[in-house]
């Protein structure tokens, strides 16, 4: 039992990172970013090229990959998404579906059709800790992910730019009146979502097989995790991600593993019918489409 809980929570970090980017973008722009999972995929593949082909140190790989995916999202936002969400969130949401198609096919052209396996960085052999077997790779994923979350939280609460972002999320008109560049803060939310995806992708790469289609499922999971935590709520997204990871491993271990996704979805749907705004969600954020 302890074993299952620990591995579930560790893996849930991946969902937590996707969900945070998803929630932040939604809160700032009312766009549901269905390319969220493909950002992870892209991060993983860029990481593969840098780490395996160019033999960069791992820390540089993580930083470069997250920076690259973040910048790509800023460009996409300026060129394609911003003109769409200025009209309606639904239009831009559809636009992200196009982005997902483009990223998947683009990665396929660049890195090929076959899955790539990323070599282990921190070790793949389980180490017993207090009677629980723990894979070092998963611990690294969890710790580095946590550092990312702490930095983002500090940024959102302590820095001027972070406060400006929250002001825009609260009331864009008022924020503009006090001199905040609203468009820039929205782009910044896409940068952060991309950067989180880049980090999560590189961290996920050693414990999975990199395929260009892996993003679809991950993006949906991130969306579900964000809904569980309350769409637009960042701490909620983290809790939602960890809970989703836990739920998946529990269902996989104690119920039928071939039905995991279906059972998890059923549980989440029931949960959200009972609490439509998630665990921490406020009613207000759902209004204004």
């Amino acid at each position: 039992m302890a074993q299952v809980v620990v591995s579930g929570l560790l893996f849930g970090m991946v969902y937590a990172l996707v969900a945070m980017g998803f929630s932040l973008v939604y809160r700032m722009t009312r766009v549901l970013n269905f390319a969220a999972g493909d950002l992870l995929m892209l991060g993983g593949f860029i990481g593969f090229s840098l780490y395996v082909q160019l033999r960069w140190p791992f820390i540089a790989v993580i930083l470069t990959s997250s920076l690259a995916v973040g910048l790509l999202m800023v460009i996409v936002d300026r060129l394609a998404l911003a003109p769409a969400y200025r009209r309606s969130g639904v239009a831009a949401t559809v636009s992200t579906i196009g982005l997902a198609f483009a990223l998947q096919n683009g990665a396929q052209l660049f890195w090929g059709n076959l899955g790539l396996s990323f070599p282990t960085v921190f070790g793949n052999n389980p180490v017993p800790v207090f009677g629980v077997l723990i894979v070092p790779e998963m611990v690294a994923l969890f710790l580095i992910g946590s550092i990312g979350i702490v930095i983002l939280t500090l940024f959102m609460t302590r820095s001027r730019l972070g406060v400006a972002m929250r002001a825009v999320a609260g009331d864009p008109v008022m924020a503009r009146l006090v001199g905040i560049n609203v468009e820039r803060t929205k782009s910044l939310s896409f940068f952060i979502a991309g950067a989180l995806g880049g980090i999560a992708g590189v961290l996920l790469a050693p414990i999975t097989l990199l395929t260009t289609t892996m993003g679809t499922a991950l993006g949906i999971k991130g969306f579900v995790a964000a809904l569980i935590g309350g769409l637009g709520n960042l701490p909620g997204a983290v809790v939602g991600g960890l809970l989703l990871g836990l739920l998946e491993t529990l269902v996989g271990a104690y119920l039928d593993p071939s039905w995991t996704d279906g059972i998890v979805f059923a549980i989440v749907v029931v949960l959200l019918l009972l609490r439509p705004f998630g665990i921490f969600g406020e009613e207000g954020i759902e209004e204004g489409r």
């Binding site: 996409v76 998404l81 559809v94 196009g98 483009a102």
Partner: peptide, 18 residues
Amino acid sequence: YWILIYGVLVMLVMAVAP
């Protein structure tokens, strides 16, 4: 690369001619 073309086309349409 036809899926890439679709993807870009969707983004273009949503941005320019929704």
